[in-house]
């Protein structure tokens, strides 16, 4: 087995291709709408977490405010479509670009901050965004926006009869986010980011432009998350500030990467595959009582995994791969 870095990267690409191909045929056999819904959400959170991982995992700038970009993506698409009749595809691109610009504009002052000061700044900025959208009458304020149904079509990216198109888009998004990470991992940016994460002062002294590499990571990360938000708006067809910009989204983007393995290529997807079905299943099977058992199970799992596997679950697969493969 080729154990060199280049060999590992080739193998990752092949594995990813096989997994994507397998995932693509699964919904042809699993017709249950509830299960399909969970699969769409799993892929979406996998993609979001993968994007979050670029800034927070590889570059080490822990953001708990990515809900802002998710919300901006969702709102840009929904507003352009309902107010001006602009197709969601352009809204998606526009939301991504706006988010990337905002991420850099916010990064300009924020990237001077370190540690907890930075984390709290990201939380606070997303909260300000949430409160502003709550009070912005033109954008529906607290009531939100109902996206009118104009019939099933890829052009308008609306499907009422089947969840399959959403599934394939979410799969594509997850593949793109994974591929971007795979590609950046071995680019000069990837090396800069890891240097910035490990020791920003040493990186600076060796000629890495720390500030610019943080800005680059923020822009890529925000763009992809906004595309996810835009997809989510089409998927649920109704958005309000809490449901697309609430703090829980910032967490749901971070958790899969943390559980799977932060700053790793496979961590976010692995984390999402475990966490999202678990979240949905506990919610519908034991959360229905409204008595919080789902929260106890969910929180307990987070404590257990973060204490038992600080490096993430992905480590379970790689070091002993040979024995397992045989």
């Amino acid at each position: 087995m080729d154990t060199s870095f280049a060999g590992r990267r080739r193998r990752d690409l092949v594995v990813a291709f096989c997994l994507a191909a397998i995932a693509a045929v699964v919904p042809l056999f699993v017709k249950d709408v509830y299960v399909q819904n969970i699969m769409v959400l799993t892929l979406m959170y996998g993609a979001l977490s993968q994007s979050w991982n670029i800034l927070s995992g590889y570059c080490g700038q822990i953001s708990l405010g990515h809900a802002l970009y998710f919300g901006i993506g969702a709102y840009t698409t929904a507003l352009l479509f309902t107010k001006f009749g602009v197709l969601p595809w352009f809204g998606m691109l526009g939301g991504g670009i706006i988010s990337a610009i905002i991420a850099m504009a916010l990064g300009y002052p924020c990237f001077r901050l370190r540690g907890h000061y930075f984390v709290i700044a990201t939380i606070v900025i997303a909260e300000i965004g949430l409160l502003l959208f709550h009070n912005w009458d033109w954008a529906g304020a607290a009531l939100g926006i109902d996206i009118p149904v104009r019939g099933d079509s890829w052009l308008k990216f609306q499907f009422t009869r089947s969840k399959l198109p959403y599934f394939y888009f979410a799969l594509a998004l997850a593949c793109v986010a994974w591929f971007v990470t795979w590609w950046l991992e071995d680019s000069k940016w990837g090396y800069w980011w890891r240097a910035v994460k490990d020791n920003p002062d040493a990186a600076e002294s060796l000629g890495v432009v720390v500030f610019n590499s943080k800005m680059g990571a923020a822009a890529v990360s925000a763009f992809l998350v906004a595309v996810g938000g835009s997809f989510y708006a089409q998927f649920v067809s109704y958005i309000d500030p809490e449901s697309v910009m609430g703090f829980q989204f910032s967490l749901l983007m971070a958790l899969p990467a943390v559980l799977g393995g932060i700053g790793t290529l496979w961590g976010p997807l692995l984390g999402a595959i475990i966490l999202i079905p678990l979240t949905e299943l506990t919610r519908s099977f034991i959360g229905g009582s409204g008595r919080g058992v789902d929260l106890i199970v969910y929180g307990g799992l987070i404590i257990a995994i973060s204490l038992a596997r600080p490096q993430g679950l992905v480590g379970l697969f790689s070091p002993k791969r040979k024995e397992v493969a045989r």
């Binding site: 058992v293 929260l295 929180g299 307990g300 404590i303 257990a304 993430g312």
Partner: peptide
């Protein structure tokens, strides 16, 4: 004591505790 990602482990273990406490209070 975590040897890897110490900052993350602190954030998420205490955050998991927060979720458990909320669940227990609801229960």
């Amino acid at each position: 004591r975590a040897k890897a990602n110490a900052g993350m482990v602190q954030i998420f273990s205490t955050f998991g505790l927060a979720i458990v406490m909320r669940g227990l209070a609801q229960y």
